[in-house]
Design a protein around this nucleic acid. Structure first.
Lengths: 195, 195
DNA sequence: AGGCTATCTGAACATACGTTCCTTTAAAAC
DNA sequence: GTTTTAAAGGAACGTATGTTCAGATAGCCT
């Protein structure tokens, strides 16, 4: 008994990714074996290599996809008429985007240590792009007089940390709706930068 | 050749903890073997069991110690005369305390997944105590009219995330001194809660 | 139906892991 | 000096890992 009936790379491939995403997020990359992933998918471990060259590539692919999608989501924002509007737009997009994919977010922040040096450099570069985009907004706000920010770079790190922290506690169907969370956080961010 | 000359549990014990702390923080608990820790210490892996019952206990101990020290640090704060002063005191203490032990902080946030269920529950309870303390400050500020906070619990999570995020980028001897970082963050926190 | 491609199984390889425990050596106690 | 305790070495145990690859089966195309 070798090939499973009904198997098709278009089906198994995404299943491998999904299983890896879920397991890596829950247990951590290093703690999850390829056999575990395979079991979740319903194949033997050797079959995974039809879909990924190796374990590290699987992780990198997940993390790269996440960052690419994040940057695309940000790029899809309409050009806001003012720095304050841009900041609000960014804030809401960040919370909404991340809330839709808790596992991917978790991995994106928790598994940097498990990337090979080259992969780490690639992901880090993408993260830097994202951070720089927020910093640009803050700088524009300072120049326009909309914001009172002592240090745009530090403020960028603070805001991103705050926003990303939503992922550690927010759950759909909880006490607060996503819209409420967005509003509360936007209110805090706005005030924190003096807008 | 069995016992190493000059060996003494008072020396080796702390070395084991220190090596584990450093290695877990850098590579992650699951990715670090006991042989690796032993190598760092300069003993064989079997010797580690003179100092810890097992690998999980080593991790738990590090994380528990961190939380105990954090709560002690917070308890040592003088009773502030007002909610605003309490919040400032908390903010500065959080940043200072965490900046002094980056590895322990990293582990405290990144290795929750690798705790056994009972250990996780114990650490989580301690984290909840700390969060509750900040939430109390915010609630007191709302009651006294010092703060304008829509949701103290959510604000608590936002502030802690922001403050803890300092650990991902702050380095002694960098562009900013710790005092400057404290001041910038306190300013943001103060404004974010409308104080 | 036959041939080719796709997709898996399952065994194996080389290596590694957490832990135990007997033996050895060093240090402390008497 | 002798005995007891301390602290290590080192081997082994039972198990696990990432990966490869030959062979087996399924699906597609002619």
């Amino acid at each position: 008994m070798a090939r499973t009936q009904g198997s098709h790379s278009g089906i198994t491939g995404p299943r491998v990714r999904k299983a890896a995403l879920t397991l890596f997020a829950r247990h951590g990359y290093a703690a999850v074996s390829m056999r575990q992933i395979a079991r979740d998918v319903g194949v033997q471990a050797g079959a995974l290599y039809n879909y990924t060259p190796d374990k590290q590539s699987l992780l990198f692919d997940l993390m790269k996809t996440h960052m690419d999608e994040l940057l695309a989501s940000r790029a899809a924002l309409a050009a806001p008429p003012s720095p304050a509007a841009a900041l609000e737009s960014f804030t809401r997009m960040h919370i909404r985007f991340h809330s839709e994919r808790p596992d991917a977010v978790f991995i994106a922040y928790m598994e940097l240590r498990n990337l090979s040096p080259e992969n780490f450099a690639a992901i880090e570069a993408l993260r830097r792009v994202y951070e720089d985009q927020l910093e640009e907004i803050l700088r524009a706000g300072v120049i326009s007089g909309d914001f009172t920010v002592a240090d745009p770079k530090v403020t960028t790190m603070a805001v991103i940390a705050m926003l990303t922290g939503v992922n550690t506690w927010f759950r759909e169907g909880g006490r607060l709706s996503l819209e409420e969370v967005e509003q509360i956080y936007w209110d805090m961010v706005r005030k924190a930068v003096g807008a």
